[in-house]
Amino acid sequence: MKIKKRGKTLFTSSSFFTKSERGEILVENVLFIVLNIIFISILILFLFKQGSGAALLEQTYSKQIALMIDSAKPVMEIKLNMEKAQKITEKNKIDFNQVVSITGNVVNVKLSQKTGYEYSFFNDVEVKAFPETNSQNEYTGVYIFTINKNGQ
């Protein structure tokens, strides 16, 4: 039977020996996607690390403490929760006792060996800062500030 030219395209070998339509997963494409995922995850990790970085916390704590001392009056005792700072000092191997130091009217917050942030306050009072410890002599993550009149 003569097959018409038009019909020829219909009746080819593919009609009788149907090829499987399953595509092959190419290694190149998988590698490409994996590399993209790694890149995005590195970017996200970088973002989160910056957010909870020591530098930012040092700034926020020192300003918070300075403003707290400015608002205070003698004789006062103020407790400040610094658990976030405690976690960072454990990583950076710094004693929690050395995190906050007050010299004159300047507050210095240090969360790593090399860094530190200073901020001054205008209240003419004598301030002492020390970390709170529990019965087992462990740091609780709270810092205590005692405010007295200058000269006392």
């Binding site: 004159g104 009217n105 300047v106 205008f122 003419d124």
Partner: peptide, 20 residues
């Protein structure tokens, strides 16, 4: 004002030229 209200405007910072 500074004495009566217990204020201190000087700081030990090097470039501090009257901050208040």
């Amino acid at each position: 004002l500074l004495e009566e209200c217990n204020l201190i405007f000087e700081t030990k910072f090097e470039n501090a030229v009257g901050e208040y």
